[in-house]
Design a protein around this nucleic acid. Structure first.
Lengths: 201, 201, 201, 201
DNA sequence: CATGAATGAGTTTTCATTCAT
DNA sequence: TATGAATGAAAACTCATTCAT
């Protein structure tokens, strides 16, 4: 849809050991755990089981690498949310879809979600990476525009509703990482319900 | 109350140029902007208008410095929320107080709030700093325990409600930083309302 | 015999420029001349014709480097003395062998001898290096034990005789370094004679 | 006699706390233990119970300080040996006096003796300090010249005999430091005897 | 191509020396 | 005069990047 020429997460297991892929995987893991400046390129190489020099055959620099990882997973998150989105369902159902898909993504790809949160608006992200940030929120904002007009959701700026809901989702996921809470099916369902009540008219 | 022996933010303007203070100020600024590993000690020294060596007269190491900054501002946040907290007001009023104080703190000390968010659970934080993390949430969690029992708030784990509300607050503040939204009095009031509706029974 | 798993001095000229070897060579030279604390790692790198960072590819730290140099040359000295030692010759001949070999070592490897003297019992030497110190004297002490029982050497603690003889050897070598005297064949022979007369019964 | 304008060790306890004196005392202790480059000037100040800046009121630099300490104690050693030297006693008695006085000095001022050994011929010693080195041996060398001519001592260069005897003394003292041997009266007497036998004709 | 050894610029930290008090 | 806080130059050490193999 609006996810452009960024490389995507490989759908299924590839047969041969793809070096580029293992580098991206290793980078995701280390950047998510230790941050950009806290991660040494040779450390990425080691986790990826490639030589340090090999990374520079696939990526121009450490900055380039982090940007590729960022774009890939930001795209993957957008993709996970919008693919086959029930555009013609009720607003309530659409919200449920959005919420569930976001939580599902965070549960299935915890490191990617952590990485995206940690590197959000970092100074070493390039223009393209930063642009993706707003793009991903665009459809959700549009959703709130529509539902507000129909007086289904509260009469507040869409960006504010978006910030509240996305913030709550991130709060939930972080709570789960830090073992302060467990994201059971039940908890997720109730939390979704809470968020809906927060925003509905 | 539960704010311990950490050094506090100086109340008013001091008369003479306090080096320790300017170092802490500079560190807060740079750590908030570039992160721990992304900030060089001489950069802190330059912003603080002191020699690089001077930092080591006041702090044992870069790690020590970040921990002092962390404890100071985590303590300040806790202080801002709990000082003269209307413990005997209604649950609704208490929630309002909590929400407003958090937003006020983030508005008055945006760099401190950003710093705390960015360094949350970082591996270079010491035991004392980490302990403060849970301590700060403790009274809020207790609030949700009480109100849930009285069927004022939803029958969900307090930590989940806490995560949703705190997440929403952080989402709001980040939205404001990134200029996606403006935190007017009106927006804050409405957002608070949303959050209450999210959690009330 | 008692020379353990320490790396040894390379026997002959190697074909390609071995960086580890040139670092050890440079370190020996500078540590012997200026001492441990008086020698900067970049200075070692410069003398070794390698980059400063390269040293850390071969040695964990400056301390590690000085310990490797110490063990190598302490081992070499021990080796030079005990290899093919005439254990079944007369006491007088054995003493001659010991004395000559020590002087020969100091003459052939003056920097190594100086290095060992200078770093003797230094606080940055590790347990293994310190252990070598006593190991090297052990056979000589044993020699004095035996000869004293046979009333060939004086009835004094072996360690005292050892200290006198080794001290005299070191005194001689230092005198030669400082150009106060010249270690000609004749001088060495006479000095050896003096030392034997000092200790014989 | 030949000890010139170097400052001397204060004979008895002075009544008021003399800063210069405590600095020299502290410097002797630390330089002997950790070497010149291994000793920080503020560390000397701390041991001396003076401010770091105070050291620079009495000594131009760290190098100056080490040179003053060196000259003082080299002079003290020379003084201890030559004062009231029994110049008209027999050669045997003169040798005994020399040996005993050296050992006595090392026993009474172990740190000074260690300091002198450790800093012998160090590159940061100035011309005057270096000159003292030879001056101190001069009378001893003269002694050997005389006795050799009288065929009391061996027909060898005086410097060689000197090196052997002084080396043996140093070996003995180091052995005592390192607890390899104990310098009892008996051991000292026997050792002196050994040394005489080493050099006598 | 893939590598990993080599490197030098940059990092954190120490310390000899100065100077305002 | 004595001080000790302040400093910047230099120390040990790390790491992004290159390049010979």
């Amino acid at each position: 849809m609006f996810i452009p020429e960024v490389d995507t997460v490989p759908a299924a297991a590839s047969e041969k050991p793809d070096r580029r892929e293992s580098i991206l995987e290793a980078a995701l893991e280390l950047f998510a755990e230790r941050g950009f400046h806290g991660t040494a390129v040779p450390a990425v190489a080691e986790v990826a089981h490639v030589g340090a020099g090999t990374i520079y055959r696939y990526f121009a620099s450490k900055e380039d690498l982090v940007n590729v990882v960022y774009k890939r997973w930001k795209g993957a998150l957008a993709h996970a949310i919008v693919t086959d989105f029930p555009l013609h369902a009720t607003a309530r159902e659409q919200f449920h879809a959005f919420f569930s898909r976001a939580i599902d993504f965070a549960t299935e790809h915890p490191r990617a979600f952590k990485f995206l949160e940690l590197h959000h608006h970092a100074p070493y992200l390039d223009a393209r990476s930063r642009a993706l940030e707003s793009e991903i929120f665009a459809p959700a904002v549009a959703f709130f525009e529509t539902t507000r007009e129909k007086q289904i959701t509260k009469d507040m700026p869409s960006e504010v509703l978006m910030a509240l809901v996305w913030g709550a989702i991130v709060g939930l996921v972080k709570g789960a990482w830090e073992k302060r809470l467990r994201l059971t099916k039940d908890v997720i369902a109730h939390a979704e319900s809470c968020c809906w009540e927060a925003i509905r008219a």
